[in-house]
Design a protein around this nucleic acid. Sequence first.
DNA 1: TCTGATCGCGCG
DNA 2: AAAGCGCGCGATCAGA
Length: 579
Amino acid sequence: MPETPVTHGRMMLMYLLLAAHPQGAAIQETDAAGSSPAEPRIVAKTELPAVVRELENHRPRWIWNRAQDWYPTLLAAGVRLERCHDLSLCRTILAFSEFTAHTAYAREAAQPSVDEDSGLIRALAPPPPPADQDALFETPSHSREPGVEDIRAEFTAQQDAVRSVADGHRQRLQLLLAAESASAMIAAEMQHSGVPWQEGLHEDILRRHLGPRPAPGHRPAALEALCTELRTLLNSPKLNPDSPQDLIRALHRNGIEVTSTRQWELKESAHPAIGPLLEYKKLSRLFTANGWAWLDAWVSGGRFRPEYVVGGVVSGRWASRGGGALQIPKQIRGAVHADPGHKLIVADAAQLEPRVLAALAQDPKMAEAARGKDLYAGIAAQGFGGDRSKAKIAMLGAMYGATTGESGRLMPQLARTYPRAVGYVEQAARDGEAGRTVTSRLGRSSPPPSERWLRSQRSTTAEEQRRADALARSRGRFTRNFVVQGSAADWASCWLAELRRRLRALEADGAPGPGRRDGGELVFFLHDEVMVHAPEAAVPACVRAIEEAAAAATHLLFGKVPLEFPVSVAVVDSYDQAK
DNA sequence: TCTGATCGCGCG
DNA sequence: AAAGCGCGCGATCAGA
C-alpha cells in the first residue's frame, strides 16, 4: 500500500475500498474520481482487523457496501474507524433524491431490476436475514457479494452523480451522504457498546408492579388478581381481557357503549370496571413488552444491545429491530443506569420539528417566537393569548395535517400569524396530493407514488373518486410531514456526526494508553435525543461537545439563521431522572 | 398448525 | 381533552 499522498503540503483524503474476496477481503486505494494507482491487496479474514487498524493511521475514508457487513467484526476486534462511505445507504438516497433526478444514476438505481446480480441492489431491499443454522436449505444465491470492482464502479457512479448536482444543492447532498455514512458507523458502535442496563433494577420494577416472576404460561399475580376482579365486575366469568373482541362484548353487555377498547375511549366511561381495566392494560403491556422474557432476550452482561436500522424510515429516521429499542417505556427507564464512576448525559433538541419548520420556511415571526427556550410559549404569546397548550396543538396539527377537532379549528389562527411556515407545509401537502415528491433540507426525497396510487387517481365512478380523494389527502399528510420530519432527521444526523467527532477528539486529548476510552461514549439515539455514557471527570467536556455539535448542525443545515436549536441536557445516574 | 392482518400501545 | 405524521412488537383472530 502506498504512502499517504501529499500534495502541496496538504494531506489529501485517501479512499480505501473494502470488498469481499474469495480469500477474505480486498482493499484497494482509490481517488475521488475512482481511479486506482495500485492493485488491490488481498487480506485473509483473520488478518483484516490488524491491517485495517494499520491503514487507519492514514485517516482514510473507507468505502464499503454496507458498514453492517464489516464494522461490527472490526469493533469486536477493538478497531474503531473515523470515516466511511456506505454505498448502500447512499445509493438509496441518490436513487430518489430530487437533486439527482436528472442523472442516469438515479434512473437506473431507482429500477431494482436493472442490476439484479451486482449485490448492491440490496440497498433497495431489506437486508438479508441473519445467517441461519439451516444452511442445508440455503437458496442458490444469484446475487453474489459485490467484489472490489463492483464497489469501485458504484463509488465512481455515485461520485459522478453528486458532481453533476447544481451548486448549493450539491453541498447539501454531500453533507447528507457523509452524515448518513457516519450514522451507519455510529449505529454499529452503539450496538457494540450497548445501553447500560441494570437487570436487578429492572427486576425490582417488575416485582413492584407485577409481583414475582410467574411460571411460564401464567399471568403474574397482579394481573391475575385484576383479571378475577374484572370477571366479577363485568359478570363474565370466562372473560379474557387480552382479547379485544371478548372484551368489547363484555363491555356492551354491561351497558358500556364503546366502539373500541382503546384507553382514551374507555376513559370516557365512569363504570366501576374501567379503572381496573385500564390498570390491567397498563400492567399487561409492561409484562408482555418489557417483562422478564424481554430481559432474558435482550439484556446481557449489563447492556441492552438492540439492532439499529439506519435509514429504516423513508424520512431518514432510524428504525430498530428487536427489543423495541426506540420505545423504551418511561416506566422502566430507571433500569438504564450508569456504571460506577460514570454518568448518563441525556440531551434532547427542544421542539426540534417546529424550529426546523421555522428555518425551512424562513418565517421571521416564528423565528422570533423561537427566541426563548420554549417555542410553544413564544407562539402562545404571539397568537394564542398565552395559552401554551393551544399553541402546541395548533403547531402539531399544522405539521401532521389535522383537519378536525380542536387542532383543525386552531389552524386558521396559526396561518394568520405565521403565513410562511404554514404555507410551507401546505405546499408540501398539495405536492403530495398531486403525486409529486417533496424533499428534505439536505436532499432526501419522499418516495414517488405507487402504481396503485396513480391508478386510483384516474378512477371514474363517483365512489372510486371519493376513495381516490381520500388517498390523495392521505398522501398529502405524509408529504406535509415528510419535509419537517425529514429535515429534522437531517439535523439530528449532523448533530450525531458532529458529536461523535468531538467525543473522539476528547479521547485523543486524554492521556495515552492502550484501549483507553475516557471521553464518553454515545450509547443511545432516539430521533431528537442522545445519550452519552461518560466518566464523571469527562462530563463537562461532553456536555460542551453536545452543545457545540448542535450549533454546528444548525449552521451546516441552514447557514446563518436568526434561530436557535437549544438542547436540554440532563446529567443523571439513571434515565428516569432525565426530564 | 401455520401465516398474514388487525388491534392496541409504547416511543418520537 | 382527543385526531393528524413516523415507527416496532405482542396477542388475537381469520383464513387457509
